[in-house]
Amino acid sequence: MTKKVHEDQRYVTALLNNNVALVNEIYKKSAGKVKSFVLFNNGSADDAADIFQEALVDIYNQAKYKNLQLTCPFEPFLLLVCKRKWLNELKKRSISPVTKSEDDLLHIGEDTFEQAEVLAQQKEQAALFLKAFEKLGERCKEIIRWSMQGEAQEKVAETLGVTYGYLRKKKSECMASLVKLIDRKND
């Protein structure tokens, strides 16, 4: 059963289309809350800005590359993503937060937790895939890196000085090696 897409999907679309007015609305609604949460928990205004920006870029990425469909309201989702990010950051800095748990988030719906969880997982996974990618041979890395730029593959072949057919063949082989590398890690 697919859940209904929430009307707040428009904020996600605003990020995709760089709709400045609507993105500004996101800031107006949520930036203050994230700022006070971070300030209250041993952070600075700059930290808050970094976290907020990172969260919005993560949401953009998930929307563009992972087809994010929001089934919960945008604001609690964003706030939850920001809070988790900041608590992780504190852990890295070995500072224990003032707000220990997510008690104050108890009124948030299950959908929101689920979506924040998926976002975090996919980000983590992408980082793992990138690590595996770094282990490939130089030629493979070059071919994959170029073909991921979103340009027409014919043009990529031209840039690399190979034929289109060779590029397809080589990319398939390189990607297969990568999948096997990742597969082995998961076993």
Partner: peptide
């Protein structure tokens, strides 16, 4: 798609930034 997310020089993302 995950790798693309990491590697693409994404114009839309740059503008959003």
């Amino acid at each position: 798609s995950s790798l693309q997310m990491e590697l693409a020089n994404d114009d839309g993302r740059n503008k959003l930034l």
